[in-house]
Every structure is written in structure tokens, then in C-alpha cells.
Design a protein around this nucleic acid. Structure first.
Length: 431
RNA sequence: GCGGGCGUCGCCAAGUGGUUAAGGCAGCGGCUUGUGGCGCCGCUAUUCGGGGGUUCGAAUCCCCUCGCUCGCCCCA
């Protein structure tokens, strides 16, 4: 067993699985298109510095999960762990002030160096959507609605939307001061993990999973009490609009999220049926990221959906692929040439026409057609080829001996009539 | 980084110290070289993740190692 294997935490996606992926992606893309969100593609590797500054050095993602290496020029490079920082970089670099309002999406692989487990891999895929330049509450709502609708269009049930607000920078630093004071007093009652976070990233202590710490935190100062009037109003406004749109949500004051750049609204959509990796979508507002990275002051909001988890949640009705319309059985020199010409012709009708190129016997080719559940077959041997003809026949299991028809290669009308009658080909698609 | 579980054919899977390692699915060939469902017949692991040890003898016991998987942390 000295064969090659894929790297830990990576996965091959085989043709059978990809049917579902493609169907899911198609539904997503349609919804994005209808919402007038445009695609952006950025490189999957960036200089390490970008993520350290963009995401924050104190975050878990940066401090212990980055897939980082030196390239041949000794530059530190990192496989992107998420998309937002790259998008911000790309916009700044390409002149954000000339296009101050942009609704963007991207889809592709992301990398996080962690121990893999159910619903978590080192290479995984995300759909990300970013509304850049938008600061209104309506853009918050539009983003949440878009995420919600995509999940709904995919037929996913039993989802929970959790929301929280983190306020703006000033709110947060006011809270942090008070919180740190409280932490000093209560430090020793916290679990070890949380103690370590006091210096690195105190906010994250809020969403600890440690039951003991959770209980103690109940007496800690609350971020919400430190919000300015304006921030509170903003949050109340969001809740009101969600109610108007009948999008159910839960408030979770401990929802902090792992990336440093969030401000105001933060949200997650989770599903109980995903096991311990419950989050399928996470997002929030990041009004300071662009300016922090050297761009002009630009508010923005976005979310990311984990595609692997999404696939896990979507129903198996999405596993069905388009069936073969016509399987072309052919053998013999003349027949093979004719079959090639014919297959190209048929594909112009937007039919799935599979040309058998195995060279196997007629019997084998027919068995293959049967296994593929092809709706119809065409048979061409040299006998037919000599007369420039082929035999076409419906191919279903109820009637073994279906009526077949012999058609001349040049008789387009007869062929089209047959296709229209038997394969429900629409006249309008004929060319 | 830390815990638990598991590694027998492409996939599922029996075997738990004794001559040739069940079976099913898939694949290939045939019955039927030019006409498909079903059926029947045959083929497909000198080898049990890898290495070492114990033993007359190991897939089965011991040690090491690698891999997978689930959970913790965190996230998509």
C-alpha cells in the first residue's frame, strides 16, 4: 500500500456526489442572480499578513488554523481561511472609491489547518456574499433575508437564526474596559481556556461552552448595556423588520463570532441535524475592516455558507441528474463515422446524446444503454451506414420491442418529428 | 494540541491462534461475435493499513508506527 493518498482533511468529489453539488450550486446561483449580486473571484493564496491584519491576530483562525508556508522567494503565503479579507483587499486595490456600492458573491475552496471531523475539513467550500458600501439597516435585512431564502430554496428545514449586536468600536471598548475589570476579580473562577483569552481576546469568553464559566458570566456586565442610544435603536430596528418579514430569530447575547472585524449585527444560522458542527451560515457587519486595511472608510456586511454542511442538509431529491436521451450504438468503420456525425447533430437539439466509443459488441453496447436508462437508442451498423441510414427506437423497460424507425441521415424533418413525438422535444429548440 | 473508536478486494462485510481468507454489490468474460430487462456459469485479496515480536503455526496475541473516524477547542 505505497499508493498516493490525498492529504488529511481534503476530499475527492466524485461524479456521483457532484450531481448534488451542481444542483445545489445552480439553485444558489439563480437566487443570487435574481438578487442582482455579482460574482468576484480572488486568488486562493494571499500574503499571510493580509489575514493577520484583516481577521485579527488574536483569533483562533489566525493564531492556530492557518495553512501557511514559505514560497520559493521566502515570502510567507497563506491559503485563504475565509473570503472577506481577500475581497476587501481586491476592492481597495482596484479602486473602491470609483465603485462605492457593490453586492458581491464568491464561491470556492477555503483552508483551515484543523483536525478534521464530521462537517469540518481542512479544505472546504464556502459561498460568501458581501454588500460593500452599504450601511443601512435595510442592507442588514437584505443580507439576512438572502441567506435565509437561499437555504429555503434548497428545501432545508428546521433552521435557527440567531442574532446579536456587537455595537460600534466605542461601545465595544467601553464594554471591554468594564468587562476586563470584572474579569480581574473573577479570573480564578473561570476555566483555563477563558483565562487565557483575557489578554488575547476577552470578548470571545462570552461564547464559551464551559458550563461553569457560563454560569459565572451571568453576573458579568452585559455588552448590550454599553451600547449607545444609536446602536440600540439600530438593533431594535433590525428586530422589528425581521418580524415584519416573518423571519423567525433567536437573540443570543453571547454570539460573538470568531473574527475581530465584526460590528453591530452578527448572526448565525444553525441546524441541529449537523452534529457538533451546527453552523451552516455565519455573518455580520464589518464597518471597520476596509479602513483598517488601508481603504477609505467603507461600511459593509456579509455572510458565508459552508457548502459541505449545506450538502449534508439538502434533501436527496437533489441527487437526480438528467438522463441520457439517446444512446448511439455503433460498430464498423462506416457506421462509426456516421455515428460521430449524427451525435453532433443531435446535441444541437440540446439532447444528451452519448456516442458509444468502446468498440464493444452490439450486445454489450445495448446493455450499457440499458444500464444508463437511456430514453432511446440509435443503432448503426455498416448495413445501415452503407445506405446512409440509422435506426432509432424508444428504449424503455415496459415495452421491449418498441416500434423503431429507419431514418436517412439527411432527412432532418423525419428525425425532428420523431424526436418531438417521442422525447417531447420542443419545436422551438430545433435549429 | 488533547481524548474515544476503528483499519480484511473498488464498496459493504464474515472470520477472534491451525491445512486453500466466506458471502453480497460493483467490474470483467461467457451462455447470446448485429440487438437490452431477468436468469445461469466462470473470473477477480499468495493476503488481512505498515513494520517488528511471540508461536511449530497469526488476519486473529503483544509492541511500535501510519491512516481513518468521532468528540473537545473553534468555526463554514
Amino acid at each position: 500500500m505505497n499508493n498516493f493518498k490525498n492529504l488529511r482533511g481534503t476530499a475527492d468529489l466524485l461524479p456521483d456526489q457532484l450531481i448534488k453539488w451542481q444542483n445545489v450550486e445552480k439553485i444558489i446561483l439563480e437566487q443570487l442572480c435574481r438578487s442582482s449580486v455579482k460574482e468576484i473571484r480572488t486568488p486562493i493564496i494571499e500574503m499571510t499578513e493580509l489575514f493577520m491584519r484583516g481577521i485579527g491576530e488574536g483569533t483562533d483562525v489566525v493564531s492556530k488554523e492557518m495553512y501557511t508556508f514559505l514560497d520559493r522567494g521566502e515570502r510567507s503565503c497563506t491559503l485563504r481561511p475565509e473570503g472577506t479579507a481577500s475581497v476587501a483587499r481586491a476592492l481597495i486595490q482596484n479602486g473602491i472609491s470609483s465603485k462605492p456600492l457593490q453586492k458581491l458573491w464568491y464561491m470556492g475552496p477555503m483552508f483551515r489547518y484543523e483536525r478534521p471531523q464530521a462537517g469540518r475539513q481542512r479544505q472546504f467550500h464556502q459561498l460568501g456574499v458581501e454588500f460593500v458600501g452599504y450601511e443601512s439597516v435595510r442592507s442588514d435585512i437584505e443580507i439576512i433575508t438572502l441567506a435565509w431564502d437561499i437555504l429555503e430554496k434548497l428545501g432545508i428545514k428546521e433552521l435557527n437564526l440567531e442574532i446579536n449586536t456587537l455595537g460600534d468600536n466605542i461601545d465595544r471598548s467601553n464594554f471591554q474596559k468594564a468587562f476586563l475589570k470584572w474579569l480581574e476579580v473573577n479570573k480564578n473562577s473561570l476555566d483555563l481556556d477563558s483565562q487565557k483569552r483575557i489578554d488575547k481576546n476577552p470578548l470571545r469568553i462570552l461564547d464559551t461552552k464551559n458550563v461553569q464559566t457560563k454560569k459565572i458570566l451571568e453576573d458579568a456586565p452585559r455588552l448590550f448595556d454599553f451600547l449607545s442610544e444609536k446602536s440600540v435603536q439600530r438593533y431594535l430596528n433590525i428586530k422589528e423588520q425581521l418580524k415584519l418579514l416573518k423571519i423567525p430569530y433567536l437573540e443570543n447575547f453571547n454570539l460573538v463570532r470568531g473574527l475581530d472585524y465584526y460590528t453591530h449585527i452578527a448572526f448565525e444560522i444553525t441546524s441541529g441535524s449537523l452534529g457538533s458542527q451546527a453552523t451552516v451560515c455565519g455573518g455580520g457587519r464589518y464597518d471597520n475592516l476596509v479602513s483598517q486595511m488601508g481603504g477609505t472608510e467603507t461600511p459593509a456586511i456579509g455572510f458565508a455558507i459552508g457548502l459541505e454542511r449545506l450538502i449534508l442538509l439538502s434533501g436527496n431529491e437533489l441527487e437526480e441528474s438528467r438522463e441520457t436521451d439517446i444512446y448511439i450504438v455503433n460498430k464498423g468503420n462506416k457506421a462509426e463515422t456516421l455515428a460521430m456525425k449524427l451525435s453532433r447533430k443531435l446535441r444541437n437539439y440540446d439532447l444528451i446524446a452519448e456516442l458509444d466509443i468502446s468498440g464493444a459488441s452490439f450486445s454489450k453496447q445495448l446493455k450499457k444503454a440499458n444500464k444508463l436508462k437511456s430514453k432511446s437508442i440509435i443503432v448503426i451498423g455498416d448495413d445501415e451506414a452503407l445506405k446512409n441510414q440509422f435506426v432509432i427506437r424508444l428504449f424503455n423497460n415496459e415495452n421491449l420491442k418498441n416500434m423503431e424507425e429507419t431514418i436517412s441521415l439527411d432527412d432532418a424533418i423525419k428525425l425532428e418529428n420523431w424526436l418531438e413525438k417521442n422525447l417531447l422535444l420542443k419545436r422551438s429548440s430545433l435549429s
